[in-house]
Design a protein around this nucleic acid. Sequence first.
DNA 1: TAGTGGTCTAGACCACAGC
DNA 2: CTGTGGTCTAGACCACTAA
Lengths: 240, 240
Amino acid sequence: MNERPRSLHQRILADISGRIVAGDWPPGHRIPFEHELTEQYGCSRMTVNKALSQLARNGLIERHRRAGSFVARPRSQAAVLEIHEIRAEVEAMGLEYRYELRERHHLTATATPGGPFYTGTRLLSVSCLHFAGDRPFCLERRLISLHAVPEAEQEGFAEVPPGTWLIRHVPWSSAEHTIRAMPADRATAAALGIETGTASLVVERRTFGAKLAVTDVQLIYPGSAHAVTARFAPDGQAKA
Amino acid sequence: MNERPRSLHQRILADISGRIVAGDWPPGHRIPFEHELTEQYGCSRMTVNKALSQLARNGLIERHRRAGSFVARPRSQAAVLEIHEIRAEVEAMGLEYRYELRERHHLTATATPGGPFYTGTRLLSVSCLHFAGDRPFCLERRLISLHAVPEAEQEGFAEVPPGTWLIRHVPWSSAEHTIRAMPADRATAAALGIETGTASLVVERRTFGAKLAVTDVQLIYPGSAHAVTARFAPDGQAKA
DNA sequence: TAGTGGTCTAGACCACAGC
DNA sequence: CTGTGGTCTAGACCACTAA
């Protein structure tokens, strides 16, 4: 239906995925065995297996030894949320990006329930504003673990936003995102130039290194102007 | 570091992924060629290729013919957002779930800019409330395309929530999610038992079949009690 | 116990991009 | 041109499990 897949295992994947998406093969339906597909496509089992394994990884089918492969019953919809740098978000809207550091100081992690940092960890607290054109686009409140990223001590964050700096200096990470609606408190409202209590979208991201928590950031978007979008493709193929 | 991977290609994947996450191999670093890894692990190229291909699919590395494989520079953080049925969400909190249909009527799609339905499509409009214990948990406003799902005509949705019914009757789908903060309007506030203007989290999901838009739903969660969470694992392996 | 998927091999040919 | 990754083959052995 789409562009022709270049390789055979991709075509097999697309064929099966297409049947499932179209509803020809409802949840619970048994997919042809590998040796049957081998005959249908006139190829080796490895090629068929590559396609089916990927479908299983993407949760579109379930595979059971001796029983066969079956169309999965959807348990939850899994969407892929892409979180870009704020500068890229702003420029994608065709607006000029500007960054402003508001505050930078040290503190020590206290025993916060649910907090990502061990008690006593030395932290750098950074507060800054991201502008889209003339208007504040996002207020960023960030804690950086100086235990995980001691180099942050030397960085003033006057020019380079901490998110950009971190993505360049911290090797890689796993992360947890939490998205919620909050009324803006007085300080937030003042920084963003909105009225206290205005509904705002808060995206909190906790980033972890191999073991240690690296950073905990709250990105506060004023009003209902900003939205987070996520796309979902059952076979993990389409991108649109 | 974690549980021992059972298969060789999983171990290779975990080894390389570990080096990258730990920062031993920074972005841009060249990963050993397939034939080198073949020697290191004493296995065939297919096995090495399976591991590297998966790392490339997950965006952890980039591969180029003739040049080799390189640790990718992170462009955006991609998180996986899992959206469960509301009943499951409520019961996961240990509260009793209750469902209440508020309204159900027909209408015809108008030329809404950005709307998912073709103009003139016959739609079913359903409004309902999901309770957690005694308190309203979520207000659902949903449009269902009777063109894509004619069987919905026969369904009253008095007992079964439309989300549950659809997931059982519509074969599969792709979807777009949008998450934003909104002040509750008067009707919403009344339904949810909150004050007008209270910051609320709105999750909008547009579901598509093979070609047609199936349903467009707004889930409105009152106040800042509810949050959407997403997890991110760079190698696509870890789940916890 | 028999049949399925999970994994792996030791080759092979090709496309592509850097040299 | 050369070396890399992308793909594919025609086998093989094993683990698991439904019958």
